[in-house]
Write a protein that binds this DNA or RNA. Sequence first.
DNA 1: GTGAAAGCGCTAACAG
DNA 2: CTGTTAGCGCTTTCAC
Lengths: 364, 364
Amino acid sequence: MGALPGFGWRIGYLVWFLLDWGRLVSDLTLEDIAKKAGVSRSTVSRVVNDHPNVREDVRERVKEVIQSTGYQPHAAARSLASQHSWMVGLVLPRNVSSFFTDPYFPRLTQGIAQACNQHNYTLSLFLIGTKEDEEKIYPRVSRKGLLDGVLLQSDQIGDQLADQLIRSNIPLVIIGRPFSNKNVSYIDVDNTNSAFIAVSHLIRLGYKRIGTITGVPTRTVSLDRQEGYIKALIERGRDIDESLIVEGDFTEAGGYYAMQRMLPHKPDAVFAGSDTMALGAMRAVRETGLRVPEDIAFVGFDDLPLATLPEPRLTTMRQPVYQFGIKAVEILLDVIENGITPPRRVIMETELIIRDSCGASRRR
Amino acid sequence: MGALPGFGWRIGYLVWFLLDWGRLVSDLTLEDIAKKAGVSRSTVSRVVNDHPNVREDVRERVKEVIQSTGYQPHAAARSLASQHSWMVGLVLPRNVSSFFTDPYFPRLTQGIAQACNQHNYTLSLFLIGTKEDEEKIYPRVSRKGLLDGVLLQSDQIGDQLADQLIRSNIPLVIIGRPFSNKNVSYIDVDNTNSAFIAVSHLIRLGYKRIGTITGVPTRTVSLDRQEGYIKALIERGRDIDESLIVEGDFTEAGGYYAMQRMLPHKPDAVFAGSDTMALGAMRAVRETGLRVPEDIAFVGFDDLPLATLPEPRLTTMRQPVYQFGIKAVEILLDVIENGITPPRRVIMETELIIRDSCGASRRR
DNA sequence: GTGAAAGCGCTAACAG
DNA sequence: CTGTTAGCGCTTTCAC
């Protein structure tokens, strides 16, 4: 080919044509850049990856060529050669029927996405919608050469995926307290203690018949918060009235119906397992003509933006949902990049935000 | 090495040790499977990819080996060789401050994720959080060898990313009506006509001072719905009262404040640009002691689950948000797999869902 | 500091 | 129908 200058010229012509034309603007390879900069592939690779061993002027020259051509390394090629994809997966389970009903998950996702942006990782989202999805999820997530690590929202009891992922040894951080796995990194708040504090607050305000709306009983978050509720009552020598413990499902509607079931048992205060359920419950209360907090006081959990909106602003246990996401990614990347082995448990702080719905101001 | 049987044995030993041990369970390559099945790499590749040209019994044998070893092809290697990653990106812009406030986006995302699962594509999520993200987003999304195509929620005026992506020639489907680009595939509803119908409904019910809460004026969806509102009024010979057109931002709080600004101008009905804003607006109305729909009637837009919850159930223009996601993926995969070139525009159907907030029942 | 060379694990002609 | 042979574009020793 070197013997055919005319041919070489035609190639050049073709390339520039394509360069001006769109799609192929950057269909250049390391090789091409190397040629243009008068160095070898290795050197270009080094400057692309910020390796130290490159003379400063050479580095500059190469960088200029990269700039002017808009060269970008081929993601798959790089992954294959380096065994590192710079991608992490976020897996959200099926039971999360509340995914688009409860702002919790969007908020969490936002935090995670933000952290991924910051660290230049690509985020893959695995939403498990159907039972079939659930069965096919493991191979999809664990496929070799796809993800460097995975974030799994999993506090479901008997979560198979969590077990499989742990066994697979892929870097993993669980969001929420896993039910039965001891040897995983996870991030959570102390739900039991937080609930304890929330309910104690209601007790201190003098309420006598304090009920609770729990989440689905298949998640540790529900169990933990319920446990905190019970502990708080017992610590003050109160009896536990089963009729004041009703089950919701973390949705607004769930809170609404749960409250309808609780109302006949005359609670004077309610600790709801989430803000969204608290909102639904308060709606049920209003519909019967009762007032919040005068007739029934409320404390929620989450402190999502919606908590401050409705008329009696919601007293609630704030948990740093967005920060969950940020932190979870940080832990995961630490494992990925530094191979930290011992599982880490991170418990984030919660804070009781006292507003109107608990009646604190009027009870003073 | 063939001359050192002892060494070979040790290798075998090592492999089985690892096989039992977790992470490396599937760190087998095509080559390994080929060896175990007594065929060549190509043949294994063929059965993995369901190519027809494989004898039935050979196919069975290979499949068995694959089953028993839990072999999975290496994603990056496959992408590199086939120039096809089986990944699509979903890009959600920054202006979508409402991402975790308005259930619209979670719902859309769900539809997209569902469709990706179905078609065995991996979904990557790009949430643009900060201005910096915005600047770095194009190279990240367009990186060679990463995505087969991208879904872009873009009806922002002057969306640079959309322009860049179009020029890059990567398969692209835009969700929403792009402001200035003619040559793209996109999927949307007819917002103008839908708003027209919604407002006409209010006119027909006899309301005289019909206001509207618009979305941010930088999105076509806001402009289109406002246009429909104006057209409906003009068609009936009504004057346009500027004081009855107020701007929200697609959040509950935005609707609330917008309504507070509109209230002094005494509307008797309101067309809100989204359900979420309608909810906020209705809250503002309630707080002043006025009733919905007796004093002020409402029609919303979206028909997200929350529309049916509050006391006067919301009359609203239903748009098939989840279906958007499904359909958008289908179009995108069509382009990816069949290289359909001419841009496609898909306009989905809307439907006016009449409930209580418009006062239809009492006006009859 | 820099380049040559050997893969990473797979797909896809091309022979046979 | 099956195996051989080239790569896909990049990283990474290993010499120099």
